[in-house]
Write a protein that binds this DNA or RNA. Structure first.
Lengths: 254, 254
DNA sequence: CGTCCGTTTGATCTGTGTCAATCGCTGTGG
DNA sequence: CCACAGCGATTGACACAGATCAAACGGACG
């Protein structure tokens, strides 16, 4: 056995704040004011029934860099993201890293039959999540079948999205992957009340690289290529404007 | 704009038998004798209730090479595979192809909220599927909430599996991808009553290449490398023996 | 026996990974 | 206030894994 890791992943595994927990448990602040209720599985329940959710759920505030769940750790809770952005990470023994996705308000964490978490979930920005102990969630589903329908619908959406990523990773070049990624992010941020034509990139280049199966250098070069082609413009490295949407779509291979 | 397709896909898009329909509609032959009932979502219903499934479902026999569903076509039915193997294909305008997955008995086709099929589904071998018109399936779910639970569980399993593929495509080398793919196939065939240590490969090298994001040449070379390393042995190009499981697992990057 | 198609193998080429240096911002300490 | 350290991002030079091009092989079928 003389095979070495073929595809280098981002070096210096970004340790998520060793020691510091960075998580504050809070009482649930109520579904009424929740900015992402309309996006979340919670929307399956009528407003008149949200008190059942509030009873079952806790709330958790996470400082940027903190870990919400550990790959391989026992799955006790499921979550709905309320504020901020998190990443879903899988790590290989030799250090190769995959960012399987970025989680935004309304996204559900816990579509898995496994008894352990399959990914480490880390807060990229300061974030807030609703916490549901799994037994409580099970009881809620039994009591409200429409909740389970809502979960199935959202799981299907995520399946569709994940399969779309397969095409990116399997058959698209670096610039196409990046363009596709930006369009996807833009759409998700727009649904959450963001300005169309503008994308926030709170994650690092390493996160993007490990999400798109590239290196940080190639990601950077692809950014500048899109910029040179006039498809995007930078305000700073973490915030871009989609100057020419059609060009960006063309760069994404439609 | 002078960008050309960066990653060549398999040439000569394998047209699925133009003209010939190759599909025979059959009366439902009954859930009792169904070899894949224990694997399918149908298992969520007790044997005493299967008559409701039989009433709602039809059966469809597909000759190898026939198309069950067209990407972009209206989603009218959902399916459960009963016999054979099918592929889930997405095609780009420039000919690049993705095989998003291989479908085997017990697999469900229809986890999507979209009004159109997101993939073309083609029979690789002669196959049989159960057909459920979507309204009938909806009614069944309302009547049997445990059916919807079963669907959610299976959708979650598929999500887990698809996310595992992300790691393959994003961060694994050709031999690792192939080894991982073979291990996955072996396990699925074992669950369906196959001999452990043996894998049937009814699909072509092009299918495998488009599934793993490689070219047929690289797939072929990776096969011979695994053979030279003593991990696998060929009886013929479409059937292999897993001679050294631990070696294969090592080749897959654990 | 000859054609066709899928597969394998060999010879090159190129895009992207790798290695390395620089830039620019932020925060810290003198 | 400035100097400096540290980190993320960008840019450049080079090497190599895997794509591309090309040819040969082998079984299926007429």
């Amino acid at each position: 056995m003389q095979t070495k890791p073929p595809l280098r992943s981002t070096p210096s595994a970004p340790v998520a704040r060793p020691g510091a927990t960075g998580a504050r448990r809070l009482p649930h602040s109520g579904c009424d004011g929740c900015l992402s209720r309309h996006l979340a599985v919670c929307a399956a329940l009528p407003a008149s029934e949200t008190h059942a959710l509030e009873e079952a759920a806790g709330e958790l505030a996470l400082a940027a860099g903190t870990t919400l769940a550990h790959e391989g750790g026992p799955r006790r809770d499921v979550y709905t993201v309320t504020r901020g952005m998190l990443r879903r990470v899988r790590l290989l023994a030799d250090g190769r890293r995959l960012v399987a996705g970025f989680l935004m308000p309304g996204d559900f964490i816990g579509f898995s039959g496994a008894a352990q978490y399959r990914h480490t979930i880390e807060a990229i920005t300061d974030s807030v999540v609703c916490v549901f102990p799994m037994p409580a969630m099970r009881r809620l589903c039994e009591r409200f079948p429409e909740l389970e329908s809502g979960m199935l619908a959202q799981a299907c959406d995520e399946l569709d999205a994940t399969r779309a990523s397969l095409m990116l990773l399997a058959r698209m070049g670096p610039a196409e992957r990046l363009a596709g990624f930006l369009l996807d992010l833009a759409e998700r941020q727009r649904l959450r009340g963001g300005v169309a034509q503008h994308v926030d990139l709170p994650m690092t280049r390493a996160d993007i690289a490990d999400h798109l199966g590239l290196t940080i250098e190639t990601v950077s070069r692809s950014f500048t290529r899109l910029r040179q082609d006039g498809a995007i413009a930078f305000t700073d490295p973490r915030a871009i404007d989609l100057v020419d949407l059609p060009a960006l779509r063309r760069a994404a291979g439609l």
